[in-house]
Nucleic acid binder design. Sequence first.
DNA 1: ACCTGAACACCGTTCAAGT
DNA 2: ACCTGAACACCGTTCAAGT
Lengths: 224, 224
Amino acid sequence: MAETQTPRRSRGRPRTFDRERAARTALALVDREGLAALTMRRLARELGMGTMSLYRHFRDKDELLDAVVDLASREGIDQLALRGDWQARVRTLARALYDSLTRHPGLVQVRLSRPMLSPGALRLTDIAMQVLLDAGFSPRQAAHAYRALFLYTFGCAAFDGESDPAARVRLSAAALTALPADEHPAIARSIPALAETMDSKRHFERGIAMFIKGLEAELPDTRG
Amino acid sequence: MAETQTPRRSRGRPRTFDRERAARTALALVDREGLAALTMRRLARELGMGTMSLYRHFRDKDELLDAVVDLASREGIDQLALRGDWQARVRTLARALYDSLTRHPGLVQVRLSRPMLSPGALRLTDIAMQVLLDAGFSPRQAAHAYRALFLYTFGCAAFDGESDPAARVRLSAAALTALPADEHPAIARSIPALAETMDSKRHFERGIAMFIKGLEAELPDTRG
DNA sequence: ACCTGAACACCGTTCAAGT
DNA sequence: ACCTGAACACCGTTCAAGT
């Protein structure tokens, strides 16, 4: 929306600037029309340059995706306001990660195929590790706890998708009801409950609560 | 490997047979050369038919992927031998799901974008729900527990990828060490522990143990 | 030096022509 | 009826030609 401001430093490498702009435009495109819409040709057109000009800033499409993922990973992390006991902080962190992942549904699968080693992702890692270490967990406990939280949250976000939760619950209930009951006796007894778990955000809240309960049990001495 | 046996019933719809063979060939192709190698053209060539002949069996590529996912979801579920207390059974189930997901690494991201409503996936759901209901959990508790286990396992499998775990641990340690320590103090104190969590299978075992501990706490009366 | 159009080797799928 | 090649509208990327 704002006019493109030319970078101040005319010498050195203005690369960062163009990469940033490209990544931002790409992210907006993915949000607007889905991951499939993000092609080198389309993005170049969006940026008002020839397709091949993109290759001056990114070695290939994969490197572009890296930049987009890193941009999305940084978002909303800096504004994180952590308060309360460690349980409340973990909850806030988990929600922030979940929100960050579902804010760009088209990007979840791309993020899933990349290790969490980009600068943006590591900001969150550091904050989470700080919370857990301060709570009294050992580095090993904290690392595994964070990893578990991270992976579970990704799983939730991945299946969250772009569809309306209520519609998904309804659809699941219908599919489960249509099942031959004698071949799936345990499902038959639990159809409403199973369908409810397809509302990812609600399930996520429950899962986080259970996760924190598990963490509390692992802490040697609960606060005095 | 075996000679293609012509289906017995010559009337009705032999469709199932050809779909099954196509799905099996497609799955083998994905295992051998990755998801990107699975194209309609390539698969048709592999099956010795014209590209367009595939469209007689599958409306489009998405329907083909559905069939492949369902095939992969059924695998190894029927041979599941569950014994011991519910904790042991949950552990066995979780490992079976993890193994089934990592047996076809190229397929994880496809599976992640689909609800777990295919017949193959629902077999596992029913078995898991049976175990949890028998353990004394309510349908709602069981449903959320299974969903959490399912999503966490997916997360683990997704980040597992195709690379050697040891290499991933080494690479992560290097990346974390290269970080400016003053900007990431909590990470700096935990580098070996964090790197270790990149060995997904080992982390998974720990995560499952913690998950079961959490479940035990939720059960109203422990046995006895 | 910097930028980029044409070209290459692919896609999924439509549509009309083969048998 | 059943099958499928040609064609269309796309891809990512190489390479050589523009300035």
